[in-house]
Write a protein that binds this DNA or RNA. Sequence first.
DNA 1: GCGCACTACGTACGCCGTACGTAACTACGA
DNA 2: TCGTAGTTACGTACGGCGTACGTAGTGCGC
Lengths: 237, 237
Amino acid sequence: MAGRAAVPEVIWARPERTGRGPRPAYTRAGIADAAVRVADAEGLDAVSMRRVAAELGCGTMSLYNYVPRKEDLYELMVDAVSAEHELWEPSGDWRADMLRVAHQTRALMRRHPWLPRLMSPVYGFSPNALRYLEHCLACLDPLPGSYGTRMELIAMLNGVVTTYTANELATAERARALPWSPEEESAARIAYLGERLASGAYPRMAAAFTEDAGPIDMEAVFERALGRVLDAFAPRE
Amino acid sequence: MAGRAAVPEVIWARPERTGRGPRPAYTRAGIADAAVRVADAEGLDAVSMRRVAAELGCGTMSLYNYVPRKEDLYELMVDAVSAEHELWEPSGDWRADMLRVAHQTRALMRRHPWLPRLMSPVYGFSPNALRYLEHCLACLDPLPGSYGTRMELIAMLNGVVTTYTANELATAERARALPWSPEEESAARIAYLGERLASGAYPRMAAAFTEDAGPIDMEAVFERALGRVLDAFAPRE
DNA sequence: GCGCACTACGTACGCCGTACGTAACTACGA
DNA sequence: TCGTAGTTACGTACGGCGTACGTAGTGCGC
């Protein structure tokens, strides 16, 4: 038995190699990439210790030498794709910079539709998360106010981006497991909703849905949401 | 075999009783309550078809007569606790009313810490969700603007309440499964973070964390977030 | 009053996370 | 220099999970 401490452990604090024993055959980055590959191709639910081990070409239990718990594998995945964040020299216009950050995050989640599901808990201060946060703070240098306020801005913006994008992606991600098409699913839901609204018990809801008869332009909704969040932090004159 | 259609189905559109066959021994509400009881007492991960069936005192597979898929059990649970929303006659002050809604939702999530995890996907238009949304729209009657905008307000407010409360509850909910205490866990995370920040690579992050030396007042953060969201929708003069 | 839709539920399949034991290997302390 | 302790690799096994399927019994609608 390897005798891993039964003590709270942050995976990033654990050295990849201690020196003793045989050379590890895999790297943390390689494992993370394998997991990301599986998640991208087959959905997050396909990411099991067995599946990732198979992807790497090693035995299931060998993975546990690198990753003490599955949850840590998730942390590795989030950090791996966080490396795709492109960081730039802040422009001096914090609003424009933060908009760019938000759009980048959204694009990242579109590339990796499983990401919002793993972001829901506390953001884990992984190496790339730290780089990302530091970059956001740098972009916010021109904004007057305390660091606390700036952190609140980052948190709210991230939250809104995650929530909105997750809702959009949820349908598509769900479709992978379902035995019917997303169109059939939404048709059934709309039929039910229409029937309920026709009952007259929810007049305002009915009005809201007849007002926007056509499909909603999610991109515009997202854009307005971003604008509102940033406005809420703009210094009032 | 009962021959349930292999077709998308909204659980709320399915009648509880068709008239044929023996009287069902359980009700949808009873099943939902049993599941909520298990989740409240033992955490969401304890909610399995077997466990809920045992709670009801019936065989595992009997549950499937009422709930075609586990996902539908989750929908039942969300709807059941949504009934706890207290609805009132709108005061005419939409801002005050929406603040009250937000605080109520937060209290609901504190009573049922598993709720945020089930709210993450698209809000499902369950019966109680419809009542809740109609009530929110009624509170927003005094707000000028389209129904679309009002729906966006509700969505953003709900999103922010959910995100903030979920982050707060995540630690406590995780603790149930972990072999160590949340204090040990956070100590380990803080130790790691401190060491990273001491490296000097993240000067602004370091400054942010030394600025707020004491524990953060989450209640105040939440309150400020609510105010900002509502401000963002207030008509500009 | 017949038949069929429905309820109840036991069994079984193929997954999952992961505890544990064993064997091979290598850097360090004596 | 060499044992030994700490590692890696990984097979086996356990106790869970969701749920497909088959069977038996029940009571409404024709």
